[in-house]
Nucleic acid binder design. Sequence first.
RNA 1: GCUCCUGUAGCUCAGCCUGGACAGAGCACCAGCCUUCUAAGUUGGGGGUCGCAGGUUCAACUCCUGUCGGGAGCGCCA
Length: 540
Amino acid sequence: MKEVIAKLLAKELKLKEDEIIKLIEVPPQSEMGDYAFPCFSLAAILKKNPVEIAKELSSKIKAKELEKVQPVGPYVNFFINKKILAEQALAIKDDFGKGKNKEKILLEHTSVNPNASPHVGRARNSLIGDSIKRILEFLGHKVETHYYVNDVSKQIAMLALNFKQKDNFDDLLKKYIEISKKVKDNPELEQKVFQLLYKFEKGDKETIDIFKRIVDTAVKGQKEIFSSLGIEFDYFDYESRYIEEGKHILKELGETNKLFKDDNNRLVLNQKNTGLELKMKSPVLVLTRNDGTGLYILRDLAYTIEKCKKGKNILVLGEDQKLYFEQLKQALILLKKPYPRVVHYSFVLLKDIGKMSTRRGEVVLLEEFIEEAVKKAKEIAKEKKTKGDVKKIAYASIKYAMLRNENNKNITFDWQQALNFEGDSGPYLQYSYARASSIMKKAKSKKEKLKIESVDEKEFLLIKKLLNFPEVVNQAYKQLSPHIIANYSLELCQIFNDFYHSCPVLGNEKQAFRLALVDSFRKVLKNSLFLLGIEAIDEM
RNA sequence: GCUCCUGUAGCUCAGCCUGGACAGAGCACCAGCCUUCUAAGUUGGGGGUCGCAGGUUCAACUCCUGUCGGGAGCGCCA
Protein backbone atom coordinates (compact mmCIF):
# COMPACT_ATOMS: atom_id res chain seq x y z
CA MET A 1 0.00 0.00 0.00
CA LYS A 2 2.86 2.29 0.85
CA GLU A 3 4.21 1.67 -2.62
CA VAL A 4 0.98 2.80 -4.23
CA ILE A 5 1.08 6.06 -2.35
CA ALA A 6 4.73 6.55 -3.12
CA LYS A 7 4.02 6.10 -6.81
CA LEU A 8 1.30 8.71 -6.75
CA LEU A 9 3.48 11.14 -4.86
CA ALA A 10 6.43 10.49 -7.14
CA LYS A 11 4.38 11.67 -10.09
CA GLU A 12 3.67 14.97 -8.42
CA LEU A 13 7.01 15.58 -6.81
CA LYS A 14 9.82 14.49 -9.11
CA LEU A 15 11.25 12.51 -6.25
CA LYS A 16 12.23 8.89 -6.42
CA GLU A 17 9.77 6.36 -5.07
CA ASP A 18 12.14 4.76 -2.59
CA GLU A 19 12.99 8.16 -1.16
CA ILE A 20 9.32 8.86 -0.66
CA ILE A 21 8.72 5.48 0.94
CA LYS A 22 11.25 6.36 3.58
CA LEU A 23 9.37 9.53 4.40
CA ILE A 24 5.93 7.98 4.60
CA GLU A 25 4.88 7.27 8.15
CA VAL A 26 1.95 5.94 10.08
CA PRO A 27 0.02 8.63 11.96
CA PRO A 28 -0.11 8.34 15.73
CA GLN A 29 -3.88 7.96 15.72
CA SER A 30 -5.98 5.96 13.32
CA GLU A 31 -8.54 8.76 12.90
CA MET A 32 -5.79 10.75 11.25
CA GLY A 33 -5.48 8.29 8.45
CA ASP A 34 -3.58 5.17 7.57
CA TYR A 35 -0.48 6.77 6.18
CA ALA A 36 0.94 10.23 6.27
CA PHE A 37 3.40 12.17 4.24
CA PRO A 38 5.16 14.99 6.08
CA CYS A 39 6.02 17.98 3.92
CA PHE A 40 8.79 19.49 6.03
CA SER A 41 11.62 18.34 3.86
CA LEU A 42 9.85 19.64 0.77
CA ALA A 43 9.48 23.04 2.35
CA ALA A 44 13.20 23.58 2.14
CA ILE A 45 13.43 22.45 -1.48
CA LEU A 46 10.37 24.24 -2.80
CA LYS A 47 10.82 27.21 -0.50
CA LYS A 48 7.21 27.14 0.44
CA ASN A 49 5.25 26.79 3.61
CA PRO A 50 4.82 23.06 4.31
CA VAL A 51 1.18 23.64 5.17
CA GLU A 52 0.62 25.04 1.69
CA ILE A 53 2.42 22.16 0.07
CA ALA A 54 0.29 19.68 1.96
CA LYS A 55 -2.85 21.42 0.76
CA GLU A 56 -1.77 21.43 -2.85
CA LEU A 57 -0.67 17.84 -2.84
CA SER A 58 -3.87 16.67 -1.23
CA SER A 59 -6.00 18.23 -3.91
CA LYS A 60 -3.99 16.68 -6.71
CA ILE A 61 -3.81 13.09 -5.59
CA LYS A 62 -6.59 10.70 -6.39
CA ALA A 63 -6.74 6.94 -6.83
CA LYS A 64 -9.21 4.14 -6.49
CA GLU A 65 -7.17 2.69 -3.62
CA LEU A 66 -7.60 5.88 -1.65
CA GLU A 67 -10.79 6.73 0.10
CA LYS A 68 -9.70 10.19 1.10
CA VAL A 69 -6.64 12.41 1.02
CA GLN A 70 -6.59 15.11 3.62
CA PRO A 71 -4.14 17.85 4.52
CA VAL A 72 -3.66 18.35 8.23
CA GLY A 73 -1.18 21.08 8.92
CA PRO A 74 2.08 20.10 7.25
CA TYR A 75 0.96 16.50 6.72
CA VAL A 76 -0.87 14.87 3.87
CA ASN A 77 -2.97 12.12 5.38
CA PHE A 78 -4.08 9.17 3.32
CA PHE A 79 -7.10 7.07 4.05
CA ILE A 80 -6.87 3.75 2.32
CA ASN A 81 -9.94 2.19 0.81
CA LYS A 82 -10.95 -0.04 3.68
CA LYS A 83 -12.47 -2.72 1.49
CA ILE A 84 -9.21 -3.35 -0.31
CA LEU A 85 -7.36 -3.94 2.95
CA ALA A 86 -10.25 -5.97 4.30
CA GLU A 87 -10.02 -8.28 1.33
CA GLN A 88 -6.30 -8.71 1.95
CA ALA A 89 -6.89 -9.51 5.61
CA LEU A 90 -9.55 -12.08 4.83
CA ALA A 91 -7.22 -13.75 2.36
CA ILE A 92 -4.65 -14.44 5.08
CA LYS A 93 -3.55 -18.05 5.06
CA ASP A 94 -1.69 -20.22 7.55
CA ASP A 95 1.63 -19.37 5.95
CA PHE A 96 1.05 -15.62 6.10
CA GLY A 97 4.39 -13.92 6.71
CA LYS A 98 6.52 -16.97 5.99
CA GLY A 99 9.68 -16.47 3.96
CA LYS A 100 11.52 -18.43 1.36
CA ASN A 101 15.13 -17.97 2.35
CA LYS A 102 17.20 -21.08 2.04
CA GLU A 103 20.32 -20.15 3.93
CA LYS A 104 21.87 -22.69 6.25
CA ILE A 105 22.34 -21.26 9.72
CA LEU A 106 23.97 -22.81 12.77
CA LEU A 107 22.56 -21.41 15.96
CA GLU A 108 24.36 -22.01 19.23
CA HIS A 109 22.54 -21.14 22.40
CA THR A 110 22.12 -22.08 26.06
CA SER A 111 25.35 -24.05 26.66
CA VAL A 112 24.82 -24.05 30.42
CA ASN A 113 27.74 -25.37 32.43
CA PRO A 114 27.10 -29.06 32.99
CA ASN A 115 27.48 -28.69 36.74
CA ALA A 116 23.97 -28.04 38.01
CA SER A 117 20.34 -27.40 37.30
CA PRO A 118 19.93 -24.18 35.32
CA HIS A 119 18.58 -21.09 37.05
CA VAL A 120 15.98 -18.73 35.70
CA GLY A 121 18.62 -16.32 34.42
CA ARG A 122 20.13 -18.94 32.15
CA ALA A 123 16.70 -19.70 30.78
CA ARG A 124 16.78 -16.34 29.10
CA ASN A 125 19.51 -17.61 26.82
CA SER A 126 17.48 -20.68 25.90
CA LEU A 127 14.25 -18.83 25.36
CA ILE A 128 15.81 -16.13 23.24
CA GLY A 129 17.75 -18.76 21.33
CA ASP A 130 14.73 -20.93 20.73
CA SER A 131 12.65 -17.99 19.59
CA ILE A 132 15.37 -16.89 17.18
CA LYS A 133 15.45 -20.42 15.81
CA ARG A 134 11.73 -20.25 15.21
CA ILE A 135 11.95 -16.86 13.54
CA LEU A 136 14.74 -18.03 11.24
CA GLU A 137 12.88 -21.16 10.27
CA PHE A 138 9.68 -19.23 9.75
CA LEU A 139 11.53 -17.15 7.21
CA GLY A 140 12.62 -20.31 5.46
CA HIS A 141 16.17 -20.67 6.71
CA LYS A 142 17.57 -24.09 7.36
CA VAL A 143 18.58 -23.98 11.02
CA GLU A 144 20.69 -26.33 13.11
CA THR A 145 20.71 -25.74 16.85
CA HIS A 146 23.89 -26.54 18.72
CA TYR A 147 24.44 -26.93 22.44
CA TYR A 148 28.07 -26.71 23.42
CA VAL A 149 28.79 -28.87 26.43
CA ASN A 150 31.67 -27.51 28.50
CA ASP A 151 32.85 -30.85 29.80
CA VAL A 152 36.50 -29.84 30.30
CA SER A 153 35.90 -27.05 32.77
CA LYS A 154 37.36 -26.29 36.14
CA GLN A 155 33.81 -26.47 37.48
CA ILE A 156 33.54 -30.12 36.50
CA ALA A 157 36.93 -30.86 37.98
CA MET A 158 35.84 -29.29 41.26
CA LEU A 159 32.64 -31.24 41.26
CA ALA A 160 34.64 -34.41 40.62
CA LEU A 161 36.22 -33.95 44.03
CA ASN A 162 32.84 -33.95 45.70
CA PHE A 163 30.89 -36.36 43.53
CA LYS A 164 29.69 -39.77 44.63
CA GLN A 165 28.60 -42.56 42.36
CA LYS A 166 25.03 -42.45 43.63
CA ASP A 167 24.60 -38.69 43.21
CA ASN A 168 21.91 -37.62 40.81
CA PHE A 169 20.99 -34.43 38.99
CA ASP A 170 19.22 -32.84 41.93
CA ASP A 171 22.29 -33.26 44.16
CA LEU A 172 24.66 -31.45 41.80
CA LEU A 173 23.84 -27.89 42.77
CA LYS A 174 24.31 -28.49 46.49
CA LYS A 175 27.53 -30.39 45.86
CA TYR A 176 28.82 -27.71 43.59
CA ILE A 177 28.15 -24.92 46.05
CA GLU A 178 29.88 -26.90 48.81
CA ILE A 179 33.06 -27.61 46.89
CA SER A 180 33.10 -24.18 45.35
CA LYS A 181 33.31 -22.61 48.80
CA LYS A 182 36.00 -25.02 49.93
CA VAL A 183 38.19 -24.46 46.90
CA LYS A 184 37.91 -20.73 47.30
CA ASP A 185 39.49 -20.86 50.76
CA ASN A 186 41.98 -23.60 50.04
CA PRO A 187 44.78 -23.23 47.47
CA GLU A 188 45.93 -26.82 47.94
CA LEU A 189 42.52 -28.08 46.98
CA GLU A 190 42.66 -25.88 43.93
CA GLN A 191 45.91 -27.57 42.94
CA LYS A 192 44.07 -30.87 43.04
CA VAL A 193 41.50 -29.42 40.69
CA PHE A 194 44.16 -28.47 38.19
CA GLN A 195 45.77 -31.87 38.52
CA LEU A 196 42.49 -33.45 37.56
CA LEU A 197 42.22 -31.23 34.49
CA TYR A 198 45.77 -32.14 33.55
CA LYS A 199 44.99 -35.84 33.87
CA PHE A 200 41.82 -35.38 31.86
CA GLU A 201 43.65 -33.70 29.03
CA LYS A 202 46.32 -36.38 29.08
CA GLY A 203 43.65 -39.02 28.70
CA ASP A 204 43.67 -40.59 32.15
CA LYS A 205 40.87 -43.10 32.00
CA GLU A 206 39.70 -42.87 35.58
CA THR A 207 39.44 -39.09 35.46
CA ILE A 208 37.65 -39.18 32.15
CA ASP A 209 35.13 -41.61 33.62
CA ILE A 210 34.32 -39.39 36.58
CA PHE A 211 33.99 -36.32 34.38
CA LYS A 212 31.81 -38.20 31.99
CA ARG A 213 29.50 -39.42 34.71
CA ILE A 214 29.02 -35.91 36.07
CA VAL A 215 28.55 -34.33 32.67
CA ASP A 216 26.14 -37.00 31.50
CA THR A 217 24.07 -36.59 34.64
CA ALA A 218 23.97 -32.84 34.24
CA VAL A 219 23.30 -32.77 30.52
CA LYS A 220 20.55 -35.33 30.82
CA GLY A 221 18.85 -33.31 33.56
CA GLN A 222 19.23 -30.04 31.72
CA LYS A 223 18.00 -31.51 28.49
CA GLU A 224 14.87 -32.77 30.20
CA ILE A 225 14.08 -29.38 31.67
CA PHE A 226 14.52 -27.58 28.37
CA SER A 227 12.64 -30.29 26.57
CA SER A 228 9.70 -29.84 28.92
CA LEU A 229 9.61 -26.24 27.77
CA GLY A 230 9.58 -27.36 24.16
CA ILE A 231 13.19 -26.46 23.54
CA GLU A 232 15.11 -29.12 21.66
CA PHE A 233 18.63 -29.18 20.28
CA ASP A 234 19.87 -30.80 17.11
CA TYR A 235 23.42 -31.33 18.29
CA PHE A 236 25.21 -31.60 21.61
CA ASP A 237 28.83 -30.77 20.90
CA TYR A 238 31.33 -31.82 23.53
CA GLU A 239 34.18 -29.47 24.25
CA SER A 240 36.51 -32.39 25.02
CA ARG A 241 36.34 -33.39 21.38
CA TYR A 242 38.26 -30.24 20.46
CA ILE A 243 41.31 -30.72 22.65
CA GLU A 244 43.45 -32.05 19.81
CA GLU A 245 42.21 -29.56 17.26
CA GLY A 246 42.88 -26.84 19.80
CA LYS A 247 46.54 -27.78 19.72
CA HIS A 248 46.60 -27.32 15.97
CA ILE A 249 45.10 -23.90 16.39
CA LEU A 250 47.88 -23.15 18.83
CA LYS A 251 50.38 -24.08 16.15
CA GLU A 252 48.67 -21.90 13.58
CA LEU A 253 48.65 -18.98 15.95
CA GLY A 254 52.33 -19.63 16.56
CA GLU A 255 52.98 -18.82 12.92
CA THR A 256 51.53 -15.34 13.26
CA ASN A 257 54.41 -14.17 15.48
CA LYS A 258 51.82 -12.78 17.87
CA LEU A 259 52.19 -15.69 20.23
CA PHE A 260 54.64 -15.56 23.12
CA LYS A 261 55.42 -17.19 26.43
CA ASP A 262 54.91 -14.97 29.44
CA ASP A 263 56.85 -14.95 32.70
CA ASN A 264 54.76 -17.80 34.03
CA ASN A 265 55.42 -20.03 31.08
CA ARG A 266 51.94 -19.63 29.65
CA LEU A 267 51.26 -19.23 25.96
CA VAL A 268 49.71 -15.86 25.31
CA LEU A 269 48.38 -14.18 22.19
CA ASN A 270 49.19 -10.54 21.72
CA GLN A 271 46.04 -8.70 20.68
CA LYS A 272 47.39 -5.20 20.29
CA ASN A 273 46.13 -3.15 17.37
CA THR A 274 42.79 -4.92 17.25
CA GLY A 275 40.83 -2.31 19.12
CA LEU A 276 40.94 -4.47 22.21
CA GLU A 277 43.59 -2.31 23.84
CA LEU A 278 40.81 0.21 24.46
CA LYS A 279 38.65 -2.32 26.17
CA MET A 280 40.98 -4.02 28.57
CA LYS A 281 44.02 -3.19 30.63
CA SER A 282 46.29 -5.38 28.65
CA PRO A 283 45.16 -6.73 25.28
CA VAL A 284 46.35 -10.30 25.54
CA LEU A 285 44.66 -13.63 25.34
CA VAL A 286 45.98 -16.41 27.53
CA LEU A 287 45.70 -19.74 25.75
CA THR A 288 47.32 -22.25 28.10
CA ARG A 289 48.02 -22.80 31.77
CA ASN A 290 51.63 -23.13 32.85
CA ASP A 291 51.26 -26.90 32.97
CA GLY A 292 50.51 -26.79 29.26
CA THR A 293 46.81 -27.57 29.47
CA GLY A 294 44.71 -25.54 27.12
CA LEU A 295 42.18 -22.98 28.26
CA TYR A 296 38.58 -22.87 27.19
CA ILE A 297 39.08 -20.41 24.36
CA LEU A 298 41.48 -22.69 22.55
CA ARG A 299 38.87 -25.36 22.17
CA ASP A 300 36.22 -22.75 21.49
CA LEU A 301 38.31 -21.46 18.59
CA ALA A 302 38.55 -24.93 17.12
CA TYR A 303 34.85 -25.47 17.66
CA THR A 304 33.85 -22.16 16.13
CA ILE A 305 36.02 -22.69 13.08
CA GLU A 306 34.42 -26.07 12.52
CA LYS A 307 30.92 -24.65 12.85
CA CYS A 308 31.62 -21.76 10.51
CA LYS A 309 32.68 -24.17 7.80
CA LYS A 310 29.15 -25.54 7.70
CA GLY A 311 27.24 -22.29 7.26
CA LYS A 312 26.39 -18.94 8.67
CA ASN A 313 26.63 -18.85 12.46
CA ILE A 314 24.63 -17.14 15.16
CA LEU A 315 25.55 -17.31 18.82
CA VAL A 316 23.51 -16.31 21.86
CA LEU A 317 25.68 -15.18 24.75
CA GLY A 318 25.31 -13.34 28.05
CA GLU A 319 26.53 -9.79 28.28
CA ASP A 320 29.33 -10.95 30.57
CA GLN A 321 30.88 -12.63 27.55
CA LYS A 322 31.05 -9.55 25.36
CA LEU A 323 34.75 -9.01 25.79
CA TYR A 324 35.45 -12.71 25.66
CA PHE A 325 33.66 -12.95 22.35
CA GLU A 326 35.47 -9.92 21.00
CA GLN A 327 38.77 -11.63 21.83
CA LEU A 328 37.64 -14.81 20.15
CA LYS A 329 36.56 -12.83 17.12
CA GLN A 330 39.90 -11.04 16.84
CA ALA A 331 41.76 -14.34 17.08
CA LEU A 332 39.59 -15.68 14.25
CA ILE A 333 40.26 -12.59 12.19
CA LEU A 334 43.97 -13.10 12.77
CA LEU A 335 43.61 -16.63 11.44
CA LYS A 336 41.62 -15.25 8.51
CA LYS A 337 38.56 -17.23 9.50
CA PRO A 338 34.92 -16.18 9.50
CA TYR A 339 33.22 -15.50 12.81
CA PRO A 340 29.62 -15.76 14.07
CA ARG A 341 27.08 -13.05 14.50
CA VAL A 342 26.42 -12.73 18.20
CA VAL A 343 23.34 -11.82 20.19
CA HIS A 344 24.04 -10.62 23.72
CA TYR A 345 21.44 -10.54 26.41
CA SER A 346 21.62 -8.95 29.83
CA PHE A 347 21.05 -10.57 33.15
CA VAL A 348 18.00 -11.50 35.01
CA LEU A 349 18.30 -9.84 38.38
CA LEU A 350 16.49 -11.10 41.41
CA LYS A 351 14.42 -8.50 43.13
CA ASP A 352 16.04 -7.64 46.48
CA ILE A 353 19.11 -9.79 45.81
CA GLY A 354 20.57 -8.81 42.48
CA LYS A 355 22.46 -11.03 40.12
CA MET A 356 21.86 -14.74 40.39
CA SER A 357 24.92 -16.78 41.16
CA THR A 358 25.10 -20.54 41.05
CA ARG A 359 28.30 -20.50 43.03
CA ARG A 360 26.79 -18.53 45.89
CA GLY A 361 23.59 -20.49 45.69
CA GLU A 362 21.57 -17.32 45.21
CA VAL A 363 19.29 -18.57 42.53
CA VAL A 364 15.77 -19.27 41.53
CA LEU A 365 16.00 -22.55 39.69
CA LEU A 366 14.17 -22.83 36.43
CA GLU A 367 12.58 -26.02 37.74
CA GLU A 368 11.21 -24.26 40.81
CA PHE A 369 9.88 -21.48 38.68
CA ILE A 370 8.14 -23.88 36.34
CA GLU A 371 6.59 -25.75 39.27
CA GLU A 372 5.40 -22.52 40.80
CA ALA A 373 3.88 -21.36 37.52
CA VAL A 374 2.05 -24.64 37.06
CA LYS A 375 0.75 -24.49 40.62
CA LYS A 376 -0.56 -21.02 40.06
CA ALA A 377 -2.16 -21.97 36.75
CA LYS A 378 -3.91 -24.87 38.46
CA GLU A 379 -5.32 -22.62 41.15
CA ILE A 380 -6.70 -20.18 38.64
CA ALA A 381 -8.10 -22.92 36.45
CA LYS A 382 -9.89 -24.38 39.46
CA GLU A 383 -11.25 -21.03 40.45
CA LYS A 384 -12.47 -20.28 36.93
CA LYS A 385 -13.66 -23.83 36.42
CA THR A 386 -12.02 -24.02 33.06
CA LYS A 387 -10.40 -26.89 31.25
CA GLY A 388 -7.42 -25.30 29.59
CA ASP A 389 -4.12 -27.14 29.71
CA VAL A 390 -2.50 -25.64 32.82
CA LYS A 391 0.99 -26.59 31.76
CA LYS A 392 0.70 -24.78 28.48
CA ILE A 393 -0.62 -21.75 30.30
CA ALA A 394 2.20 -21.84 32.83
CA TYR A 395 4.84 -22.14 30.12
CA ALA A 396 3.30 -19.29 28.18
CA SER A 397 3.52 -17.16 31.29
CA ILE A 398 7.20 -17.94 31.74
CA LYS A 399 8.17 -17.53 28.12
CA TYR A 400 6.35 -14.29 27.63
CA ALA A 401 7.79 -12.85 30.82
CA MET A 402 11.30 -13.67 29.64
CA LEU A 403 10.89 -12.56 26.05
CA ARG A 404 8.99 -9.30 26.35
CA ASN A 405 12.10 -7.28 27.14
CA GLU A 406 14.71 -6.07 24.75
CA ASN A 407 17.70 -8.44 24.80
CA ASN A 408 20.22 -6.03 26.21
CA LYS A 409 18.12 -4.83 29.10
CA ASN A 410 18.28 -6.35 32.53
CA ILE A 411 15.18 -8.11 33.67
CA THR A 412 14.18 -7.65 37.25
CA PHE A 413 12.73 -10.91 38.32
CA ASP A 414 9.84 -10.77 40.69
CA TRP A 415 7.80 -13.91 41.41
CA GLN A 416 4.60 -12.00 41.69
CA GLN A 417 4.95 -10.13 38.49
CA ALA A 418 6.39 -13.02 36.52
CA LEU A 419 3.47 -15.16 37.54
CA ASN A 420 0.85 -12.58 36.79
CA PHE A 421 -1.71 -14.02 34.41
CA GLU A 422 -3.47 -10.77 33.65
CA GLY A 423 -2.83 -7.98 31.23
CA ASP A 424 0.63 -7.94 29.74
CA SER A 425 1.18 -11.67 30.02
CA GLY A 426 1.37 -14.94 28.13
CA PRO A 427 -1.97 -16.23 29.39
CA TYR A 428 -3.63 -13.04 28.19
CA LEU A 429 -2.49 -13.86 24.67
CA GLN A 430 -3.71 -17.42 24.97
CA TYR A 431 -6.99 -16.24 26.39
CA SER A 432 -7.55 -14.00 23.38
CA TYR A 433 -6.88 -16.94 21.12
CA ALA A 434 -9.26 -19.15 23.08
CA ARG A 435 -12.01 -16.57 22.71
CA ALA A 436 -11.51 -16.46 18.98
CA SER A 437 -11.51 -20.25 18.83
CA SER A 438 -14.69 -20.38 20.83
CA ILE A 439 -16.45 -18.18 18.30
CA MET A 440 -15.24 -20.31 15.43
CA LYS A 441 -16.38 -23.44 17.18
CA LYS A 442 -19.86 -22.11 17.86
CA ALA A 443 -20.37 -20.83 14.37
CA LYS A 444 -21.83 -23.64 12.38
CA SER A 445 -19.51 -23.78 9.49
CA LYS A 446 -21.90 -22.91 6.75
CA LYS A 447 -20.08 -21.18 3.99
CA GLU A 448 -21.87 -17.98 3.37
CA LYS A 449 -21.04 -15.75 0.53
CA LEU A 450 -18.80 -12.98 1.59
CA LYS A 451 -19.72 -9.50 0.67
CA ILE A 452 -17.93 -6.67 2.32
CA GLU A 453 -20.53 -3.97 2.62
CA SER A 454 -18.76 -1.70 5.04
CA VAL A 455 -15.84 -1.80 7.40
CA ASP A 456 -16.29 -0.51 10.94
CA GLU A 457 -13.55 1.28 12.82
CA LYS A 458 -12.75 -1.59 15.19
CA GLU A 459 -12.73 -4.05 12.34
CA PHE A 460 -10.38 -1.85 10.39
CA LEU A 461 -7.94 -1.49 13.27
CA LEU A 462 -7.75 -5.26 13.50
CA ILE A 463 -7.31 -5.59 9.75
CA LYS A 464 -4.40 -3.17 9.69
CA LYS A 465 -2.71 -4.86 12.61
CA LEU A 466 -3.06 -8.28 11.03
CA LEU A 467 -1.55 -7.11 7.76
CA ASN A 468 1.39 -5.72 9.66
CA PHE A 469 2.60 -9.14 10.78
CA PRO A 470 5.14 -9.90 8.01
CA GLU A 471 6.87 -6.58 8.59
CA VAL A 472 7.08 -7.33 12.31
CA VAL A 473 8.68 -10.72 11.70
CA ASN A 474 11.24 -9.12 9.44
CA GLN A 475 12.06 -6.54 12.07
CA ALA A 476 12.53 -9.25 14.66
CA TYR A 477 14.77 -11.11 12.25
CA LYS A 478 16.80 -8.03 11.41
CA GLN A 479 17.42 -7.31 15.07
CA LEU A 480 17.37 -10.94 16.21
CA SER A 481 15.10 -9.79 18.96
CA PRO A 482 12.04 -11.79 19.98
CA HIS A 483 10.68 -8.92 22.09
CA ILE A 484 9.43 -7.34 18.89
CA ILE A 485 7.19 -10.34 18.32
CA ALA A 486 6.09 -10.33 21.96
CA ASN A 487 5.09 -6.69 21.78
CA TYR A 488 3.26 -7.17 18.54
CA SER A 489 1.36 -10.14 19.97
CA LEU A 490 0.20 -8.09 22.91
CA GLU A 491 -0.94 -5.19 20.74
CA LEU A 492 -2.70 -7.53 18.36
CA CYS A 493 -4.61 -9.13 21.22
CA GLN A 494 -5.54 -5.80 22.73
CA ILE A 495 -7.00 -4.74 19.40
CA PHE A 496 -8.78 -8.06 19.03
CA ASN A 497 -10.33 -7.81 22.48
CA ASP A 498 -11.52 -4.34 21.66
CA PHE A 499 -13.09 -5.71 18.48
CA TYR A 500 -14.53 -8.60 20.47
CA HIS A 501 -16.37 -6.28 22.79
CA SER A 502 -17.74 -3.89 20.23
CA CYS A 503 -18.42 -6.21 17.31
CA PRO A 504 -20.68 -9.17 17.98
CA VAL A 505 -19.97 -11.91 15.50
CA LEU A 506 -22.50 -14.69 15.87
CA GLY A 507 -25.99 -13.82 14.77
CA ASN A 508 -24.88 -10.48 13.46
CA GLU A 509 -25.76 -9.42 9.93
CA LYS A 510 -22.03 -9.14 9.25
CA GLN A 511 -21.37 -12.59 10.68
CA ALA A 512 -19.69 -14.02 7.58
CA PHE A 513 -17.27 -11.14 7.31
CA ARG A 514 -16.47 -10.98 10.99
CA LEU A 515 -16.09 -14.71 11.23
CA ALA A 516 -13.55 -14.62 8.45
CA LEU A 517 -11.75 -11.84 10.24
CA VAL A 518 -11.66 -13.82 13.49
CA ASP A 519 -10.28 -16.72 11.54
CA SER A 520 -7.50 -14.55 10.13
CA PHE A 521 -6.76 -13.29 13.61
CA ARG A 522 -6.38 -16.86 14.85
CA LYS A 523 -3.95 -17.68 12.06
CA VAL A 524 -1.77 -14.65 12.66
CA LEU A 525 -1.77 -14.94 16.44
CA LYS A 526 -1.02 -18.63 16.28
CA ASN A 527 2.05 -17.94 14.18
CA SER A 528 3.06 -15.03 16.32
CA LEU A 529 2.83 -17.14 19.47
CA PHE A 530 4.64 -19.96 17.75
CA LEU A 531 7.59 -17.66 17.14
CA LEU A 532 7.76 -17.10 20.89
CA GLY A 533 7.50 -20.80 21.56
CA ILE A 534 4.05 -20.34 23.08
CA GLU A 535 1.30 -22.79 22.26
CA ALA A 536 -2.05 -21.45 21.23
CA ILE A 537 -4.90 -23.19 23.05
CA ASP A 538 -8.53 -23.42 22.03
CA GLU A 539 -10.04 -23.21 25.47
CA MET A 540 -9.03 -22.03 28.87
C1' G B 1 40.76 4.21 36.12
C1' C B 2 39.17 2.41 31.09
C1' U B 3 35.35 -0.07 27.67
C1' C B 4 30.31 -1.65 26.62
C1' C B 5 25.01 -1.67 28.05
C1' U B 6 21.22 0.95 30.64
C1' G B 7 18.09 5.31 33.09
C1' U B 8 10.66 6.90 30.13
C1' A B 9 4.11 7.08 35.23
C1' G B 10 4.46 4.56 42.35
C1' C B 11 6.23 -0.54 40.04
C1' U B 12 7.51 -3.60 35.36
C1' C B 13 8.32 -2.23 30.43
C1' A B 14 7.34 -0.50 24.79
C1' G B 15 8.84 3.72 21.61
C1' C B 16 15.16 5.52 20.21
C1' C B 17 18.52 1.93 15.08
C1' U B 18 15.54 4.98 10.45
C1' G B 19 14.29 12.70 14.46
C1' G B 20 8.26 15.01 13.14
C1' A B 21 1.37 15.82 14.78
C1' C B 22 -0.99 15.84 22.23
C1' A B 23 5.18 10.19 24.97
C1' G B 24 2.18 4.43 24.86
C1' A B 25 0.96 -0.39 27.50
C1' G B 26 0.46 -3.61 31.82
C1' C B 27 0.41 -3.86 37.30
C1' A B 28 -1.28 -1.11 41.54
C1' C B 29 -5.25 2.77 42.92
C1' C B 30 -10.51 5.00 42.10
C1' A B 31 -15.40 4.62 39.42
C1' G B 32 -18.36 1.57 35.83
C1' C B 33 -19.58 -3.05 32.50
C1' C B 34 -21.46 -10.38 32.81
C1' U B 35 -30.41 -12.24 30.89
C1' U B 36 -25.64 -11.22 24.22
C1' C B 37 -19.74 -15.10 21.06
C1' U B 38 -15.10 -17.24 27.82
C1' A B 39 -14.92 -11.04 33.23
C1' A B 40 -7.61 -14.75 32.69
C1' G B 41 -11.88 -9.66 29.54
C1' U B 42 -13.42 -4.45 28.92
C1' U B 43 -14.70 1.26 29.54
C1' G B 44 -13.40 5.77 32.05
C1' G B 45 -10.21 8.53 35.79
C1' G B 46 -5.97 10.22 38.42
C1' G B 47 -0.53 9.51 37.77
C1' G B 48 5.30 11.88 33.21
C1' U B 49 10.72 18.30 33.97
C1' C B 50 11.36 10.86 28.90
C1' G B 51 18.16 10.98 34.98
C1' C B 52 20.59 16.01 34.49
C1' A B 53 23.17 19.89 31.46
C1' G B 54 24.69 21.58 26.88
C1' G B 55 24.80 21.07 21.35
C1' U B 56 22.90 19.92 16.16
C1' U B 57 17.96 20.84 13.69
C1' C B 58 12.39 24.33 11.13
C1' A B 59 11.55 19.98 14.71
C1' A B 60 14.95 15.88 19.93
C1' C B 61 12.34 10.60 24.34
C1' U B 62 14.89 9.65 19.52
C1' C B 63 21.20 12.10 16.93
C1' C B 64 26.13 14.28 19.28
C1' U B 65 29.11 15.83 23.75
C1' G B 66 29.53 16.10 28.90
C1' U B 67 27.76 14.58 33.68
C1' C B 68 25.30 11.64 37.57
C1' G B 69 22.91 6.82 39.09
C1' G B 70 22.44 1.27 37.89
C1' G B 71 24.42 -3.33 35.32
C1' A B 72 28.51 -6.00 32.91
C1' G B 73 33.65 -6.61 31.70
C1' C B 74 39.02 -5.54 31.94
C1' G B 75 45.74 -12.51 32.18
C1' C B 76 46.01 -18.48 33.61
C1' C B 77 36.80 -19.14 35.26
C1' A B 78 33.75 -20.34 31.28
